[in-house]
């Protein structure tokens, strides 16, 4: 029933069309960014907007070079990256473990339910002052903030994925004499893999929110600090430069999750 088929002509044509569409999309994506930067630069150069408040692509570029040459840029990038990645990993691991515990014990789940809902709707920034009192200011406080922001949504999403597993599948496992640990590892966890990938994607964004928020609150280093510093000194070029770098870093981190997602889908 499955001979090795050569692509038919129609199919080849279809593939070609797809490829063409992809190129067109890429082309327009480049046009949008070039157009945006170009327009910005022209408006700034001609004085239509005040570069002091609005900066300009060339000023941002120079600012990045300057910060880079003085060596401080990498220090700030490294600090933020370290806080974000550590917060991301800690929140994901601890969050999944807590979700597993809540899945395991229905009673625990029922006890914790209202608290999870409250924690989820609480703006975590409100805890900022307490965090600083407890763990001190700086990197530690930022990481804690980052974890707090990511962990609740991780717990809720993963728990949902665990308990929404088809009850007949659980029954099937039981009819083959599976114990609870086997049900967890051979059914519940693999079944929740797609949800786990979504959580990772959400957490990439959330962990950056946590880091920048933490650095705004109290810090001596990091991109959030740099943005804060820049705005206080009225050096909008530094603020803009930091934001550009932030975009690149967040995009890059998201990019790291995508191949993982593709691999999950293929399985």
């Amino acid at each position: 029933m499955k001979p090795k088929m050569n692509y038919s002509k129609a199919h080849a044509k279809y593939i070609k069309k797809l490829k063409k569409e992809k190129i067109i999309i890429k082309f327009w994506q480049v046009i949008v960014i070039v157009g945006f930067l170009g327009l910005w630069q022209i408006l700034a150069d001609t004085g239509a907007i005040d570069p002091f408040f609005f900066s300009s692509p060339s000023r941002i570029f120079n600012s990045i070079i300057e910060l880079g040459q003085s060596g401080t840029l990498f220090y700030h990038i490294w600090t933020s990256l370290y806080e974000t990645i550590l917060g991301f990993i800690l929140a994901t691991i601890i969050g999944v473990l807590i979700a597993i515990a809540l899945w395991w014990s229905e009673r625990l789940r029922k006890v914790m339910e209202p608290y999870l809902i409250i924690l989820n709707s609480l703006p975590k920034i409100a805890l900022g002052p307490m965090i600083i009192l407890w763990v001190g200011s700086g990197t530690k406080a930022t990481i804690v903030m980052c974890v707090l922001i990511c962990i609740v949504i991780t717990i809720i999403s993963m728990l949902n994925a665990f308990i929404s597993c088809d009850s007949d599948k659980v029954l099937l496992m039981k009819s083959m004499h599976a114990n609870k640990l086997q049900i967890l590892f051979k059914l519940i966890l693999p079944n929740a893999l797609p949800d786990f990938v979504s959580v990772l994607k959400i957490n990439v964004g959330m962990s950056w929110v946590g880091t920048i928020m933490g650095e705004y609150l109290s810090s001596k280093a990091g991109l959030g600090y740099l943005i804060n510093y820049g705005s206080q000194m009225l050096q909008l070029d530094i603020v803009m430069a930091s934001i550009v770098i932030l975009c690149l870093l967040a995009g890059g981190m998201y990019g790291l999750v995508v191949p993982f997602e593709k691999k999950c889908k293929r399985n």
């Binding site: 088809d166 059914l187 079944n191 893999l193």
Partner: peptide
């Protein structure tokens, strides 16, 4: 025991 749906594990 054989169920109504096959419940094969996709992964």
């Amino acid at each position: 025991y054989m169920f109504q749906r096959d419940h094969l594990f996709e992964w």
